[in-house]
Design a protein around this nucleic acid. Structure first.
Lengths: 215, 215
DNA sequence: TATGATAATATGACCAGTCGTACAATAGCA
DNA sequence: TGCTATTGTACGACTGGTCATATTATCATA
């Protein structure tokens, strides 16, 4: 039974999967309006009508692609259990940067790109992007809250505010990296976030004061 | 003579100006790919061919619009002569936020939007956006350097790195504001930038701690 | 000041191609 | 058989862009 289900599943979703993957790449590289169904189905090497067989509209296809992207982002948010919250956060961002590097720093973040591109008219898409950002910020907020509980972070700001600021800053860095095509903006983000903003309370604000930091 | 020159000037650029203004609005609201020449010339109430009379292509029109946007941004970068560099910077960002508020927080920053939307293929446009970002960062860098000279800012980081980070963070906030449609991300940016990051050297990093460890 | 040559602008009709989408016919499996 | 997935074909609207032609502005010269 399991075998049949698996076979059936792989077979059935073959065309669908090809479209989804091609759409992922195209939307990521060229944006929503910059990508045509034509582009997608040519890359996927499937007939055009197949697209509307599996996805009722371009917008719906984009949403499924975004959903996939969000899931990838969230999965990489997991880190080693033993790490401290702040370390965990740093690892997460570094993983993310590594991912962007593999993309050649050319595509930026798909969610951010959509946020910039979507106008008022694409209601459903917009709502999806809003939720994606919110849940993303919430994940960071949880980590920061844990860090404050453990005393790793001064409670000068609410985790929610801080998480939102950090997430937005990161997106700004990603956006800039799309232009510079290197990791300089990312490193500037890391430095300012982890060496200044998220410094433990008891450590001096001034990094010139020789503190040994691992890695 | 002066009268004739004036009359001539206003008359001559009438159509061109109408197209430019309509394009500005459309590109800002709907992005590059989301805006068609049709959209623009309908809003400007001019025949389509008139557009190609003044601008040789859509891309060229977009560049002229961006140029206009950059100039507006740069002009508002001027502030009162007597203000301190840091104050000047804050005033600038607050002016910018005020501007975004007038746009209903719906459009974001046109340069940032283009950065997110433009793909590798639109070479000229991309190059323009890169330059726009760079000159923008340079302006901030100059202010920060002056602040360091005046001792208003600790010299822990190079003005260039810091300016870049701040500018990128701001763009991240703008992007997010386009989704939340309020100034919350902007305020989070202001708080973290001016109350934490750019705090004068002699003031404690932790505002809760009543300057106990000072000296 | 008037004239005429030249250039810039205006404009409606039109192009070839692409857009997202629909649908009837078919193929393959249950 | 009946069902669902597949696909060739075509739709009407729209895309960025062109063209011939008409109007107007510019400016040196008479």
């Amino acid at each position: 039974m399991a075998k049949r289900a698996l076979t059936s599943a792989t077979k059935k979703s073959d065309t669908r999967e090809k479209i989804l993957q091609a759409a992922f790449k195209a939307f990521h590289e060229k944006g929503y309006n910059g990508t045509s169904i034509q582009d997608i189905i040519e890359a996927a090497k499937v007939p055009k009508a197949s697209s509307y067989n599996h996805f009722k509209s371009k917008q719906q296809l984009a949403i499924e692609v975004l959903d996939l992207y969000v899931k990838i982002v969230q999965e990489s948010m997991q880190g080693p259990e033993e790490a401290s919250p702040i370390e965990l956060l740093r690892i997460y961002f570094e993983q993310s940067i590594h991912q962007h590097k593999e993309w050649g720093f050319e595509t930026g973040c798909m969610i951010g790109n959509f946020a910039a591109e979507i106008s008022n008219s694409e209601k459903v898409l917009r709502a999806f992007v809003v939720r994606a950002f919110d849940s993303w910020a919430k994940a960071i907020e949880d980590v920061l809250a844990k860090a404050q509980d453990k005393g790793e972070l001064p409670a000068t700001q609410s985790p929610k505010e801080l998480a939102s600021y950090i997430l937005n800053s990161y997106h700004g860095a990603v956006l800039r990296g799309k232009l510079t095509r290197d990791r300089i903006p990312y490193d500037q983000f890391l430095t300012n976030t982890f060496d200044y903003l998220l410094k433990p309370a008891e450590v001096s604000h001034n990094p010139r004061a020789k503190l040994k930091k691992k890695r």
